[in-house]
Nucleic acid binder design. Structure first.
Lengths: 350, 350
DNA sequence: GTGAAAGCGCTAACAT
DNA sequence: ATGTTAGCGCTTTCAC
């Protein structure tokens, strides 16, 4: 029986050579056909394709990589502070977007989880080791060691979210994809103004994340004269939003609107508002940010919020990197940052 | 200035050859040193190591892979029905465990997200393409196409969770890692019995997942004569647990205990019980399964539940695969399944 | 348009 | 213990 018995070695995969022989052509011709078939006459190409099919030929990636000097893989770095990413729908969507785009470009996604401070070393070596053609990283905090790593590895990298340090040490622009946080915040606050609200508070995120500071900046763009008491700092968690809301209520009992820097905090704030007997949106109008999937539409009332296309951002990150690879290979410039638009989604909370 | 100007090509990486020349030895010797240095005299090895250091030599992975026929990477397949995995703490922990183990073994994690039925084809080609040495897959449903793929690709694979089909088409055992679902369920139900409960109901998971059927089997092991009315089917979601609880209450108003096949459903059931005025644990004792992180300890009352070490399972999957790789390479047998123990965690709900 | 030939950087026999 | 040598499977000039 030709059935491989449990103890037999795996069958050796057919090589270009084998295909060439079967098709009665040279290896070079097969190679051309396999790689798009440019410059090969139809009948020949057909014969080759048939031979490939018959033999079940699959190109050997290592051999190809050895000569092309491309791995066809990119690393996605997920740093320690973000280990929870997988529980965060935000990241999961972004990864999904990245995966979609990479897949479409026949590029592999190598997941690099940073699992502790000691891991940065390992990741750095890996990146420098030429295992991947480029990297994607999420730059959440200003003191992240990742940027230095990829810089040292001289590896093309695109960041998700505007990095805290805007330019590299050598003045090169750092490529990143980010939502228009500032513009979205402006839209939210303007909307509240348009509703006739006069005492508009803000619950901000942690000041070491640009998404938080950018949204705060947007708030200030519209309300440059807002009293400092109207701004409370949270940590992007529901709990922290609740605490911030309590402080705000204490400091400014007369507030009539709140713009929270994300939906989670908005949800926390909503709970406190209701518990304190303030009706939303009648007494206090509430706007969030992100339009995060279950949260924003399942609160009571559902949240008016600023939507950003997270999956699209992921796709964009991958696309930017892949485009940049070809260019940088030729010594071209790194790709420019991309800011994706946001839209205000009206629901019942404002 | 030796600083690479923005328009310069990336510096070519030093090769074995360069190191050999600098150290005044042959390529073979350098190779030996780089790969552990067995059989090379101290002083020589030292000289080589210094040269490696000086030149910043990093082995070319493609070249090595070409000759060793190992890629040093494994694919982690995540199928469409589980796209939410990233929001599921269960999977995120498992991935973390996998990542930890692979990292420790210097093996890369290539993430393969199946993004639709059409993707199975692509994944199949990829797996057959020799890009990875093995695969890790989660076999949630009985009709999953993944098993067929890896089988066709003749790729060593370890499953997370017992697959629905216990043996391969050729009678080979399928390697997997799973919690002792049946034993854990038995422990839970026995515990309820020990509490003096006499009408113990069960909320089961979807019957096409072995984790659900195994837990049901465990329940039946202890209560072989339980009336069918005491068993309701859920879908492992909080909502489905609530619905199942409602049905149970209708059919068996006199029940005094519930064993739910996971914590999410237990949480849903808890809500219904409280809404119906049944106090937990006084009127109805409740036990869950998984000890899922925020859920089990934050319900009111906190859940008594069956804990499984999910991260450990992930690590085990990776370890099993890597060990199996070496063996199977020599035509050895696939690794045996591993069942990890569960422990009953007593909290306030039972 | 097609083929011949020269490597890509490395490991593993095989010599010594 | 170390060096020599022959490829691994592929792409890519360069002739024809």
């Amino acid at each position: 029986m030709p059935e491989p018995s449990p103890g037999s070695r795996p069958a050796p995969r057919p090589t270009l050579e084998a295909v060439a022989e079967r098709a009665g052509v040279s290896r070079a011709t097969v190679s051309r056909v396999v790689n798009g078939g440019a410059g090969v006459r139809r009948p020949l190409a057909e014969r080759v394709r048939r031979a490939v099919e018959d033999l079940g030929y699959v190109p050997n990636h290592a051999a190809r990589s050895l000569v092309t000097r491309r791995t066809g893989a990119v690393g996605v770095i997920i740093a320690e502070p973000e280990v929870r990413i997988f529980s965060d729908p935000f990241f999961s969507q972004q990864i999904r977007g990245i995966s979609r785009e990479l897949t479409a470009q026949d590029t592999q996604l190598v997941l690099l989880l940073v699992d502790g401070p000691g891991d940065y070393d390992r990741i750095g070596r890996y990146l420098a080791g030429g295992h991947v053609d480029g990297a994607l990283a999420f730059s959440l905090h200003t003191d992240d060691p990742i940027p230095a790593l990829v810089r040292r590895a001289a590896l093309p990298t695109v960041f998700g979210g505007r990095p805290g340090w805007t330019a590299g040490a050598d003045g090169q622009a750092v490529p990143y994809v980010d939502a228009d946080n500032r513009g979205g915040a402006r839209a939210a606050v303007r909307y509240l103004c348009g509703l006739g609200r006069r005492r508009i508070a803000h619950i901000g995120g942690p000041p070491d994340q640009t998404s938080a500071t950018d949204r705060l900046d947007g708030y200030r763009d519209v309300l440059p004269d807002a009293e400092p008491e109207l701004v409370a700092e949270g940590a992007f968690t529901e709990e922290s939003g609740a605490r911030a809301m309590e402080r705000l209520l204490l400091r400014c009992p007369d507030l009539d609107a709140v713009f929270a820097a994300n939906d989670l905090m908005a949800s926390g704030a909503l709970g406190v508002l209701k518990a304190r007997g303030r009706s939303v949106p009648d007494d206090v109008a509430l706007v969030g940010f992100d339009d995060i999937d279950p949260v924003a539409r399942t609160t009571d009332p559902p949240l008016t919020t600023v939507r950003q296309d997270v999956e699209g951002q992921g796709r964009l990150m991958a696309r930017l990197l892949l485009r940049g690879l070809d260019r940088q290979r030729e010594g071209g410039p790194a790709p420019e940052p991309v800011i994706t638009p946001t839209t205000l989604v009206r629901r019942a909370s404002a």
